[in-house]
Design a protein around this nucleic acid. Structure first.
Lengths: 208, 208
DNA sequence: ACCATAGGTAAATTTTGCTAACCTCGCCAT
DNA sequence: ATGGCGAGGTTAGCAAAATTTACCTATGGT
């Protein structure tokens, strides 16, 4: 009676109940398959076979195939958010934080291709995603970026004549675009070099 | 014997043969449906019914459902490329060209939501897209942007210590991100205002 | 002792993309 | 004229894929 009386699953919202073996096998199976091909080309039969369970079990734990994808993404995002908040600790100054953020963001895409593929290529087109729990996590991240920019404006590190919203979009948009071809064509992504150059671009602009 | 002996269709590569009524009805039907829902949620049955033709006809003109999407995108891109090249004529200076480019790009997304949705949300995740004819058009556009940036570096308008590739990615990435929420949530997009602010961001950076 | 519930399966069902085979009308070379 | 043939279109149906329904089994709390 306490929490939400969901008609259907949305499993494991609660604390620390260990996830059922089947659940883990299914998500791991999808992750393995996503490394090789795109989501739409992966069938539920394939996921189940690869996981060593039956197709029906997928629908015990997930609303549908797409929901499975969202849950996988959620796990990645939860991990990243923890790491990201930790990375930022002890850094003084908005621009320094931004620099670290840009590096971390690129680095996680470079290291974790499946995560990047899901976020950049697979979920965007599905309207229900934007109503999901998972998307809320992205918004949390996005809010942190916003706060950093506002902080920078407050203490005069960042110009005040461009709206913080647009700055955030500019920053996140260029980060993603810089990684995109690497993600799509499975090319190397070098966080150090890219972050360096991108910071120059974002901080000082292209004008000579 | 002259041209390419395609196993299957890839219709109308040739000059000015008018497109068959059915072809037009099908593409128009898809465009209308895309205004309301995402591509994956649209069935071939729906497309055909809405077009007033049978499902099988779709497969006369298009290799598969996805190819239909690509052809629709191709038409949009062809139109835009013409308009875009025309817009750029007579503009002197790389930064002025870039400013115009940014405005045009935002404006076409603002005006033509279906076009934007296809390009930003629907084709990216499908690997075959990158082998398509349609993608080649995007590359042409992308090349033009690249040339403008190189021109700017040559005549000292643009700094030479950031690679033109990264600049291009930064420019295009921030343009897209700035439009993205508007596209996804069907919000207003104001090209004048956004282009103005975005140019400030891109040209001068965020540092005070 | 019991029964609710979590983990799991087998098998049917629906939906959907796609194909094969056929129709028909206008055009052009014989 | 005529007959073949290519373009535009349809009918009917398959096969793969996603999802649902019904069922089985162990187990831990009351």
């Amino acid at each position: 009676m306490a929490a939400k009386a969901n008609k259907k699953n949305t499993h494991q919202k609660q604390k620390n109940k260990p996830l059922p073996p089947g659940y883990i096998k299914i998500t791991q199976s999808l992750i393995a398959l996503l490394a090789k091909k795109e989501f739409n080309a992966i069938t539920t039969a394939e996921i189940a076979k690869n996981a060593g369970v039956t197709e029906a079990l997928i629908y015990k734990y997930f609303k549908d195939k797409r929901d499975l994808l969202h849950q996988v993404l959620r796990e990645y995002l939860e991990q990243y958010l923890v790491r990201f908040k930790h990375d930022l600790k002890g850094i003084k100054g908005a621009l320094n934080k931004l620099r670290k953020l840009i590096w971390s963001h690129i680095d996680v895409y470079a290291t974790n291709r499946v995560f990047a593929k899901i976020l950049l290529l697979e979920v965007r087109n599905y309207p229900d995603y934007y109503k999901s729990d998972t998307y809320q996590l992205v918004k949390i991240y996005s809010d942190i970026v916003f706060k950093i920019i506002e902080e920078g404006i407050q203490n005069k590190e960042i110009r005040s004549d461009i709206s913080p919203r647009l700055i955030r979009q500019g920053v996140l948009g260029s980060i993603e675009q810089v990684c995109l071809t690497g993600i799509i064509f499975n090319r190397e992504i070098s966080p150090d070099h890219l972050a360096e150059e991108l910071c120059e671009f974002i901080f000082k602009g292209i004008e000579k």
